[in-house]
Design a protein around this nucleic acid. Structure first.
Lengths: 194, 194
DNA sequence: TATGTAAAAATGAACGTTCATTCTTTTTTT
DNA sequence: AAAAAAAGAATGAACGTTCATTTTTACATA
């Protein structure tokens, strides 16, 4: 009973504040007091929802990662053809990274620093399975290059993080035609050349 | 006279310690006292070489970025053919990221977080010019896709950061044949398909 | 429906620690 | 012996977390 009574809104506000402040200042430069203030909550209240600062960060990471993959696979169906399925998933991921860039930036920061516990990192990876399965199928069918899934991810998906960060910094603008170009490059880099 | 007398070795030791500790703990979780200890120096001595902690980080970043690009272009000659020049530079970059992964990890962390000052970030980008010039030439010759340099970097170079981080985490091993595959994917994604 | 009450949730202030930076003194160099 | 470099100890601010207390909620009773 106890835990369920605690307002889920307050937890969400804390997670949201964490994302925004960590994006702007980095994890260790965002004090709990600021997170509390942004969430309209007392610092002490944070400890009713999270064990400590590290736990707050870990849970925020897993939350955001789940949101990311849920969005990515929402309209995907495992019966789709490999190329069509990949295009669908790719475009959903691209859309997420560009429209929800607060979330995407947060993930990029966590994925390139030692601030997240290894357990939470592993937890986050699990949700990507449908894409890895699709790639395995593509390799069997001779449509996708016989490379490790890490390599495929590096070329097909990861560039979107770089593009998102560049746009976020104001270095470039990504419109629909850029996105189509990007998709073609992603597909070129992993498809088997006929 | 004053500045020149200060030992360059001591400065280098401080920069090296900063890289190692920031890689393992993140910037804000590495105290000046630990940096000093690792460099066999008193905390107060750091302030003879650097203005403050932020300045230490900024200078470390610019140093490492310069080392990275010096290595990348060391054997490149602007008279080379586009494809050959790209292959050469790509392989030098790959070699740097995989053999000097301490340095590469440090750059990845700085490039995905707000810990570096914008000025130092800009300073670091300048040194990449030879590659951008090569790409512009390739576009004129119809060899390279007519995309922005950011897009080309995202697909041709940035995946190496992801692969380096994955290997560093023990998720995969990158041998020579993986590297050849990676190069083919990089080239596939930016070359004009005939 | 109104009231009393015990548990849960939330709070602001306080605590102890850590940290970046500075100060004063000592050591090294020229 | 004067100047530069380095050192260790000291300082004051900031932080994560906890504590003692207050406020809110849920609900039994009338």
């Amino acid at each position: 009973m106890a835990k369920l009574q605690k307002s889920i809104d307050k937890r969400n506000a804390l997670v949201k504040a964490t994302i925004e402040l960590v994006n702007n200042n980095g994890f260790h430069a965002t004090p709990m007091s600021k997170i509390a203030k942004m969430a309209n909550v007392s610092p002490a209240t944070i400890y009713l929802y999270f064990e400590n600062k590290q736990d707050l960060l870990n849970q925020t990471y897993v939350d955001v990662k789940a949101e990311y993959t849920n969005y990515a696979f929402a309209t995907y169906d495992t019966n789709m053809e490999v190329e069509a399925g990949f295009e669908l998933i790719w475009k959903r991921i691209a859309h997420f990274k560009l429209k929800e860039c607060e979330n995407a930036m947060f993930l990029a920061q966590c994925d390139n620093t030692p601030i997240i516990d290894e357990d939470s990192r592993q937890e986050g990876i699990k949700h990507l399975q449908p894409l890895l399965d699709l790639w395995d199928r593509g390799k069997k069918e001779g449509i996708i290059k016989p490379m490790t899934n890490y390599m495929l991810y590096a070329y097909a998906i990861n560039p979107l993080s770089f593009l998102m960060m560049s746009e976020q910094r104001g270095a470039m603008k990504l419109d629909q035609s850029h996105l189509e170009e990007a998709y073609q490059s992603a597909w070129s880099s992993i498809k088997v050349c006929q």
